[in-house]
């Protein structure tokens, strides 16, 4: 009938499909599909894998290496690169997670979001899948930075690697959830990136990823304590410093922990704060996404 179609099919052999009703299983499957799509896209996009590693490496080796001479007096003999390494571990997943969340803006711009929105699945499944996908991709990126621990004098201890991986996953999850809750409201890529830079960059600097969070000016101390990122950076630093063989003075100066009225917050509690926040932001994102037409 037409030159383009390969061969006319016998109507009797038409493969008919029946779409089953929605169930808990179909929702889980939808989460898996959205999650897997994020992974496929990440793997296909080699540029992104490389570019999102540029910034952490710049900070670690150029900033860390360059400021080393200025800082040596204050670090009690600990290399500055070693000191900021936990902060860099956090940074890597943060930026990757931000990009992952941005994909929902792309998806909207290029229309793919509609394909998902009109499928017989819950909107929440799409958001959860996106969030888990973003977290996985970011953590995968984090592994690369984790792999170079030896270069900055951090030993490859199994406990450290597992713990850091877990923390990266958690942080990436929270940041993706945050990014999604913003991305759902914003229709343009430039505005999204602008907003994220405006919020995430200051949060990162204030978090204490690049300096110890004790003995800061009062205003900075206040900001640091209310910065949610600080509660992800601190347990990461604790984890890394737990494996370092350094003097007590150095430990006190460089890994002071987060104190509230003189009480040092335990790592479990800090992790709990991040987890709760991540879940809260995910709920916000789901709620927003369900309300859009």
């Amino acid at each position: 009938m037409t030159a383009i179609a390969d061969k006319p099919l016998d109507p009797a052999e038409v493969v008919r499909v029946h779409v089953p009703r929605r169930s808990a299983r179909s929702e889980l499957r939808a989460i898996k599909i959205v999650w897997r799509r994020e992974l496929i896209r990440f793997v296909n996009d080699r540029m992104r894998i490389v570019t999102s590693l540029v910034q952490p490496f710049l900070f670690l080796f150029v900033l860390g290496g360059g400021l080393q001479r200025l800082a040596s007096a204050g670090t009690h003999g600990v290399n500055l690169k070693t000191f900021i390494y936990p902060g860099i571990l956090c940074m890597t997943v943060m930026f990757t997670a931000m990009f992952s969340a941005a994909s929902i803006v792309w998806d909207r711009e290029f229309g793919f979001l509609r394909e998902m929105m009109v499928a017989p699945v819950r909107r929440s499944s799409i958001v959860i899948g996106k969030c888990l996908g973003g977290a996985t991709v970011a953590a995968a990126q984090g592994v690369v930075v984790l792999a170079i621990a030896g270069l900055v004098g951090v030993p490859y201890a199994p406990g450290l690697i597992l713990g850091a991986l877990g923390l990266q996953l958690l942080l990436a999850f929270a940041i993706t959830a945050f990014g999604l809750s913003v991305a759902i409201r914003i229709k343009q890529m430039q505005s999204f990136m602008g907003v994220m830079q405006m919020i995430v960059m200051p949060m990162y600097f204030i978090s204490g990823a690049l300096f110890p969070s004790s003995g800061l000016p009062a205003w900075l101390t206040v900001l640091n304590r209310i910065d949610p990122l600080a509660y992800a950076v601190d347990p990461m630093r604790r984890l890394v410093f737990g494996q370092l063989d350094i003097s007590a003075a150095a430990r006190r100066a460089l890994d002071p922990g987060i104190h509230w009225w003189g009480w040092r917050m335990p790592a479990v509690l800090e992790v709990g704060v991040v987890l709760l926040l991540g879940l809260g932001l995910l709920a916000v994102a789901i709620w927003e996404f369900s309300a859009t037409e």
Binding site: R41, F110, G111, R114, E115
Partner: peptide, 13 residues
């Protein structure tokens, strides 16, 4: 089944 006015494919796939 739906074919929208604006394209909705994932170009990366």
């Amino acid at each position: 089944g739906l074919v929208f006015q604006d394209p909705t494919l994932d170009g990366y796939l």
